[in-house]
C-alpha cells in the first residue's frame, strides 16, 4: 500500500486517491475549429511513457482536490506533487 502525498493533507494511502490520466492536456480553446483528427487526438490519445510522467491525481476520499504529480511509471515512485496552479516542473 503505497503512500501518495496530497499537497494539502500530506501522505495518505493510495486507496484514498483516484487517477486522472496525463496532466497538462488542456481542453482546446476552440473545439469547433479543430479537424476531426485533431479533436480525436485530444479525446482519445495520451502518452504512454515509461519513466517520469506528469499525471493528474485527485484526493477523492479526502479533501477532493485535484493536483499534479511526476511519477515514475516503471517504479511507481512519486518524485514530486504540485498544485494545479504550479508550472510543470522541469525534470532531467
Amino acid at each position: 500500500m503505497q503512500l501518495i502525498e496530497c499537497p494539502w493533507c500530506g501522505p495518505r494511502e493510495e486507496v484514498e486517491f483516484s487517477y486522472g490520466g496525463q496532466a497538462h492536456v488542456p481542453y482546446p480553446d476552440d473545439p469547433g475549429g479543430l479537424s476531426d483528427e485533431e479533436w480525436a487526438h485530444y479525446v482519445f490519445f495520451r502518452d504512454n511513457t515509461k519513466g517520469r510522467f506528469a499525471e493528474r491525481w485527485n484526493h477523492s476520499i479526502g479533501c477532493r482536490r485535484w493536483f499534479n504529480a511526476i511519477r515514475d511509471t516503471a517504479t511507481y515512485r512519486f518524485e514530486r506533487v504540485y498544485r494545479l496552479d504550479d508550472p510543470k516542473p522541469v525534470t532531467p
Partner: peptide, 10 residues
Amino acid sequence: SAQTTLGQAG
C-alpha cells in the same frame, strides 16, 4: 481532523 475511511465508509 481527517477526512478518510473508517472500514469502508468515508
